[in-house]
């Protein structure tokens, strides 16, 4: 069987709820895509060229967000496929699963080295939604190849547990040294986000997304599929993307690419299916 376009599986664990729009964004980036059930046959799963774990509340966030799903048989399969170099992106709850499975940061492979802890926000608790600005710190991963290092990218977050933390002494510093910190929260002018709400959850050193050492597995809290088209961008957003939305006067412009689409284009670029910077 010849495959002209790489096929991506968006995994559906019970309780996830972003499968369909994530699939749409992957297709928009020029890839084939199916939603794949958590209880589906692993021999079919290995046929896919890459994987996206979408957002939601897998297994109701029982115990900790992502922890039950990370024990599913299908994740063992994913682990092996990532070892073979296939790209895997985890978004929000998907990121929580990748951390719980020890696939990222993956320095000590298979070991849970980091957690995504409950948001810390002044005068608030619980779930928090906001359009954040992200700085692309590493533009070489399967989720950021279509950006340039230093790009400021607005993408929304929506979660209750998204604060990157680690109990391992020196691990965070090591991640920065290894270029495994992929995205950090920043201000619209790229200044480091030191405070809420620019850093929306109190994440250590404003980390929004990390990768494994090879850069083919990325766990990110922001939702690029909610920023895949211009119409999704808020008109009152700071910076050039807000201005672009306000200036859009016809459907063609509104349905043009949004700031988050290059995350999925990066996935395509990983196979050479879309040019860098698409």
């Amino acid at each position: 069987m010849t495959k002209s376009v790489p096929r991506i599986a968006v995994l559906r664990f019970p309780g996830m709820n972003c499968e369909e729009e994530t699939k749409r964004a992957v297709v928009d980036a020029g890839l084939d895509c199916d939603v794949f059930m958590w209880n589906g046959p692993t021999e079919e799963l290995v046929e896919y060229d890459g994987y996206v774990l979408p957002g939601g509340f897998s297994y109701q966030d029982r115990v900790r967000a992502g922890s039950i799903a990370s024990k599913d048989e299908i994740v063992d399969c994913l682990f092996d496929e990532a070892q073979r170099g296939k790209p895997v992106i985890g978004i929000c709850n998907g990121a929580q699963i990748l951390l719980e499975a020890g696939m990222v940061p993956g320095i000590d492979r298979g070991k849970v080295q980091m957690g995504l802890a409950t948001n810390i926000m002044p005068d608030r608790d619980g779930y928090y939604t906001r359009w954040t600005h992200l700085e692309v710190v590493n533009d070489g991963t399967c989720a950021t190849r279509a950006y340039e290092r230093g790009d400021v990218v607005p993408i929304p977050v929506a979660h209750a547990e998204g604060r990157f933390v680690s109990a391992e002494r020196g691990l965070i510093e090591q991640l920065f040294e290894n270029d495994q910190v992929v995205l950090t929260y920043c201000g619209p002018d790229a200044a480091e986000a030191t405070e809420f709400p620019a850093n929306p959850n109190g994440s250590t050193r404003s980390i929004a997304g990390i990768s494994n050492p090879e850069g083919n597995v990325v766990a990110m809290m922001p939702h690029p599929e909610r920023a895949a088209r211009l119409y999704q961008v808020p008109s009152n957003l700071d910076g050039p993307w807000g201005a672009r939305k306000r200036a859009a006067r016809d459907a063609e412009a509104m349905f043009g690419p949004g700031p988050g689409l290059p995350v999925l284009s990066s996935l395509a670029g990983f196979f050479g299916a879309a040019p860098r910077g698409a």
């Binding site: 709820n17 972003c18 729009e21 964004a25 119409y231």
Partner: peptide
């Protein structure tokens, strides 16, 4: 303070959110 807790963007269909 109320609507920041609500997910208005799941499904990817949001064009205009509360506050806009």
């Amino acid at each position: 303070h109320v609507y920041r807790h609500y997910d208005g963007e799941v499904k990817g269909n949001a064009v205009v959110r509360p506050g806009e």
